[in-house]
Simulated scan of single mutants.
Amino acid sequence: MIYATRRFEFSAAHRYWRSDWSAEENERVFGPCAYPYGHGHNYTLDVTITGDLDPRTGMVMNMTELKALVSEVLEEFDHKHLNEDTPYFCEQLPTTENIVRVLWRLIAARLPHTARLARLRLYETSDLWAEYDGAEETTFARMYAFSAAHRLHSPLLSDKENLAIYGKCNNPNGHGHTYTLEVTVAGPVDPETGMVIDLTAMDRTVRSVLDRLDYRHLDREIAAFATQPSTAENIVIYLWQELAPRFEGRLRHLKLWETRKNVFEYTGPGAALPHTRHNR
């Protein structure tokens, strides 16, 4: 199956506010997003289509045609206040999760019969986005950082073998990284909040795990790495084991950047990795 992705951008304002809630409840749940006049973002939208190749053109769909089609949809959103200037958020909040589902409906209806919308990923900021593929569940992702030292050294190998395999990473005094962790959860969109998960609760959950690693030496201070090397592979598995029970079945995917060049992904024991794209 061939997938083709085109990136789009638009700018818009929005506000999270439920008129049937008190001001205190709105501010408790939505925080600054409930401020009275709204706020704005430069949104980025990745549109991925699939279908059979046209034997004449060698394309699933002409990207120029896709650009025109999606741009026409986004005209209704670009430089608008989503609550005030569009009809789509009278009865639902313009959260990232709800916006991406609205865009799915509008774009899918305009595609030619030879192409099919495979997924949309909408970035509200570079470290927060929602993705939708037409199913009941919507995925929501957020990126986090932590800094830690470690030494790659396996107790199952001799000192000579460790040095040969790990090289500079076997330095007895250790070295370190600022790790970046992408956490993806999935579930139905809550009809009241328009969210898959409360963002404050998600941040609190992830930080409760990462803060134990942040500014630490993994091998010397984290028990899990006393008997196994602190490779990024083992770190991302450890993070899954710690986070999955806390998300009660909603955790779908972890992606760990050790450096800009070394990236590691895990979706739990026995699960296949989803189709992923490196858009940044």
Results as ranks from 00 to 15, higher is better:
201 A>P: 07
218 L>R: 03
225 F>L: 09
199 L>G: 11
207 R>F: 08
199 L>F: 14
207 R>N: 13
204 R>L: 14
211 D>E: 15
219 D>F: 01
202 M>F: 09
218 L>T: 00
206 V>C: 09
209 V>A: 04
196 V>Y: 01
229 P>G: 06
200 T>Y: 13
216 R>D: 06
214 D>C: 00
234 N>H: 15
193 T>E: 01
202 M>H: 07
211 D>P: 06
216 R>M: 09
193 T>Q: 05
217 H>D: 15
200 T>C: 06
214 D>W: 06
201 A>N: 15
225 F>E: 06
213 L>F: 07
202 M>R: 12
229 P>L: 00
205 T>E: 15
212 R>F: 10
216 R>L: 07
192 E>D: 13
212 R>Y: 13
233 E>R: 12
215 Y>Q: 13
228 Q>E: 07
227 T>P: 04
227 T>S: 14
209 V>G: 12
201 A>C: 13
192 E>W: 13
201 A>W: 08
210 L>Q: 05
205 T>H: 03
225 F>K: 01
235 I>Y: 02
211 D>N: 13
216 R>V: 00
200 T>N: 14
222 I>E: 08
214 D>N: 15
194 G>D: 00
215 Y>C: 07
231 T>A: 06
235 I>R: 03
194 G>H: 03
212 R>T: 09
225 F>C: 05
221 E>V: 10
219 D>H: 01
197 I>E: 08
204 R>T: 15
192 E>M: 08
